[in-house]
Amino acid sequence: MILSSSIGKKLGMALTGLLLFGFLLAHLSGNFLLLKGDGGATFNAYSEFLVGHPLLIPVEFILLGIFLLHIVLAISVARDNRRARPVGYRVSASVGGRSVSSRTMIYSGLTTLIFVAVHLKTFKYADHAGDSLYGLVVTTFTSELYVGGYAVAMVLLGFHLWHAFQSAFQTLGLHARPRLRGLSIGLCILIAGGFAMIPLAIYLGK
């Protein structure tokens, strides 16, 4: 019932979105271990620690649930919104806060979904019996196509987060736009830039 109401859907999106944001920060801090320059020893130890952890599977299921709920609600909101204006304007102009980021949320979100599928296939569910995860990462990022595609996906993710972060706080009832906007921009540059920089650094340092 809550998730069928207009604000309920938005609250669901805001909360799941912020949790996914937290996941991205945790993932990025793990990825920075790739740059330690110790031949991947720390990164491999970290990855083995996670894989061997008994809570990994339950946490992964929770994460999957959050991700799916975010997507289902996004599609539902987008569908309602499309129905709300069957006949559009001949001329339309933006005078408020609409941005490239805000108007393409559904598309940047869907490309991120495709990226996640490819990403999981490449790293998490890849057959790397003979190699460490670090070895797999370094081998993968010798491909220009993969490094380029990864960077493009991160730019789109950055666009998504640009609108998402401050929007989530407004939905949760915190209207402090200028400050949140600054924080939102800073965090999305950190996340998108951080993720995109790692494959580039590996590619250039090979």
């Binding site: 207009s6 604000i7 108007r103 939905t171």
Partner: peptide, 24 residues
């Protein structure tokens, strides 16, 4: 709650925090 329910029943969309409304 009741005003929002009616808003939805009437076929208005959801807010996506783009702030075009306050500008006009």
């Amino acid at each position: 709650v009741t005003m929002l329910e009616t808003m939805q029943e009437e076929g208005f969309g959801n807010c996506t925090n783009e702030y075009e409304c306050e500008a006009v």
